[in-house]
Design a protein around this nucleic acid. Structure first.
Length: 445
RNA sequence: GGAGAGAUGGCCGAGUGGUCGAAGGCGCACGCCUGGAAAGUGUGUAGGCGGGGAACCGUCUCGAGGGUUCGAAUCCCUCUCUCUCCGCCA
């Protein structure tokens, strides 16, 4: 969400930023609306001032038992009542109108974000040193196979650990039933990641609600624009019409970021770092037909999420730090990956800048997104009214960041495809063995 | 699910129509006092919006949103949340 004052002062930059996201210029329209709003406020304040002064006099007169003077004063300001009421109503309406328009505008990309229309405009990122060699050295190499590697669902079904048919009977397409050692492996991956972020990276473990009201979704930017991507539930299905609606979280970013909503934090407590392992629910309404096979794109999946709340000065460094935390997961698992800086046209609604981590999937012979790490500036903070108090001075909006660390379902896919053996069994990466009771492989016993 | 009680500033807590953004206390900040500290003492201590270069001025906010009134923390309506008792329950 934008500060209308910022738009007033930076109208051209604002319109230019919208253009990089493929949107039309809006500053003229918004500023005209704001001018009108301010005019109304000025008139309203004037009328209120007159009324307040008179009311004080009336109070005084009544205290002095001077009823004549009191009623004379009352007559004098009686007509202001309707003026004020009209002004208040008009201000409310203009305010809501402006807020609604601002709420549907995407965030402005940072200056170093590549400009592009879609994912073809994304640029590979080799770390703060921009060194392809250093990055290649630090990351696990691409595995080589003496046989044709299979896709995860072929492996999973053969192991008796992935059942899409039964899931479809229960819930329709884009669900899966995991069983036996595959289910255990999925659980192990989640625990491994969560332990890493809490024990090594300084994140606070949180178990948030999975069901939230409208406001948190509005705060992080899923509402009002992306209503169709959400799963909603009714609190009382027997009273469908009057029933309160709640939302299944599409990501733990929603409850974790909103932990600080409507608060003023102390500067000394920043940055705050939260992590959670939660199921995520997405209706993905627009993407029917993409990745229909396997568990790459599901209505429900587990994900370890990281969220940081920082000062404006800290946020870009925190972004690099968070990316490093997510990369560490893949390094430790020994999975080859690359990092992409998303271009302006491919970034999410609330992001100023986003890195995607794409894991190598040998079965698909391609890289697939497994983590997305974004810095949002004060965009979400404004929507949530989340601020901090600098050592000396007025409250300022915090900056927020979020990143997957990482998607558990997709990590399962990556582990299975990268660690598959010719006989269809899956070797267990060293890092996961403690979480698998010491097993070194599944499926060959 | 049934019955009842509440929500006031960073915290506690007074205030049931009139100079109340709000007594008092605690906390915090700065000063005085002191060799230093404690104690004591003085002053200050919310946020949003509009106007102004600024000092500052105006306005709104006592859980949230509406309403009544010349005037609302105080009266009315709706909502949210908290607490107590009963029932149910992993």
């Amino acid at each position: 969400m934008f500060d209308i004052k910022w738009i007033r002062a930076n109208a051209d930059a604002f319109d230019a930023a919208l253009a990089t996201r493929g949107a039309q210029p809006r500053s003229a329209e918004l500023l005209a609306l704001d001018d009108h709003r301010r005019q109304v406020i000025a008139h309203l304040n004037e009328a209120q001032e007159t009324r307040n002064a008179a009311s004080k006099q009336i109070g005084k007169a009544k205290a002095e038992k001077d009823d004549q003077r009191a009623s004379a004063l009352m007559d004098e300001v009686a007509h202001l009542k309707s003026t004020i009421q009209k002004g208040e109503a008009e201000e409310r309406e203009l305010e809501a109108n402006l807020r609604q328009k601002l709420a549907e505008l995407p965030n402005v990309p940072l200056a170093d974000v590549p400009v592009g229309e879609d994912e073809d405009g994304n640029v590979e990122y080799f770390g703060p040193n921009s060194s392809r060699e250093l990055a290649a050295k630090a990351r696990p190499p691409k595995p080589e196979f003496a046989f044709a590697p299979k896709q995860h669902f072929e492996l999973g079904e053969a192991l008796g650990g992935m059942d899409f048919e039964t899931a479809a009977k229960l819930s329709g397409s884009r669900f899966v039933v995991l069983k036996s050692q595959v289910a255990r492996l999925e659980r192990a991956i989640g625990q491994f990641m969560l332990d890493m972020h809490t024990l090594e990276h300084g994140y606070l473990e949180v178990q948030p609600p999975l069901l939230v009201r409208d406001e948190p979704l509005y705060g992080t930017g899923q509402l009002p624009k992306f209503l169709a991507d959400q799963f909603g539930v009714l609190k009382d299905v027997t009273a469908e019409e009057q029933s309160e609606r709640m939302w299944l979280i599409p990501t733990a970013e929603v409850p974790l970021t909103n932990l600080v909503r409507e608060s003023i934090l102390d500067e000394a407590e920043l940055p705050l770092r939260f992590t959670a392992l939660t199921p995520c629910f997405r209706s993905e309404a627009g993407s029917a037909g993409r990745d229909t096979r396997g568990m790459l794109r599901q209505h429900q999946f587990n994900k370890v999420e990281m969220v940081s709340i920082t000062t404006p000065e800290q946020s870009t460094d925190e972004h690099e730090r968070m990316l490093a935390c997510a990369e560490k997961v893949l390094s430790r698992l020994g999975i080859h990956y690359r990092v992409m800086t998303l271009c302006t046209g491919d970034m999410g609604f609330g992001a100023q800048k986003t890195y995607d981590i794409e894991a190598w999937l040998p079965g698909q012979d391609t890289y697939r997104e497994i983590s997305s790490v974004s810095v949002c500036g004060d965009f979400q903070a404004r929507r949530m009214d989340a601020r901090y108090r600098p050592k000396d001075g007025k409250p300022r909006y915090v900056h927020t960041l979020n990143g997957s660390g990482t998607a558990v379902g997709r990590a399962l896919i990556a582990v299975m495809e990268n660690y598959q053996q010719e006989d269809g069994s899956i070797a267990i990466p060293d890092a996961l063995q403690p979480y698998m009771g010491g097993l070194t492989a599944i499926g060959n016993s």
